[in-house]
Amino acid sequence: MLAGGPDAVRAVAVALPHVGRRSIVAGSAPATGIEEPARRIRITHPKEEHVAVTLSLTVNGKAVTATVDPRTLLVELIRNQLGLTGTHVGCDTGQCGACTVLLDGRAVKACNLLAAQANGASVTTIEGVAAADGTMHPMQAAFKECHGLQCGFCTPGMVMSAIDLVNRHPKASEAAIREELEGNLCRCTGYHNIVKAVQLGAASMGK
């Protein structure tokens, strides 16, 4: 068993790329005493130079063409190249959902997607949900009305997930809303009002 926390784990993982993360975290020889098989993800020689790719996608209704390093994440394209900083990066490990955007109408975590995976698709960010005249989307208005936010960091992701949710389940129960928001974390733990906001937003979107 290794000591030293996640950074140490990562350092070892880089030094020993053939060893799985689980085996590092859990100890190299589990209770079985059987040596773990080597990790089967293929390792090829890392290289730092890249061959850029050109992407065409629609972002908030506008056609966008961008030339990126293939390893660019969708959230990096959105924030750094397109300047749409309403999409937040929280955990950067696909857990917190602050980076949630709609990809062809489906909620996805933009920190766990290559920008290239959105090639040819339509992306909607929090900047794209209000009306052209600035009138808030009914879900945004509901979050304001119900005080469905405290620090506000998770809010863009919450709103995007909520819109996807209501599009699929216009009459979702409170329990279903809580279950559907599984992938969005609020570190202020303001869930109660967030759920109320989604219920109000669902009712407003149905009108």
Partner: peptide, 15 residues
Amino acid sequence: GQSLVAAMKLRLAQP
């Protein structure tokens, strides 16, 4: 990419 991209970000996978 829900496992692969995450593993690549951590450099656990280096294709």
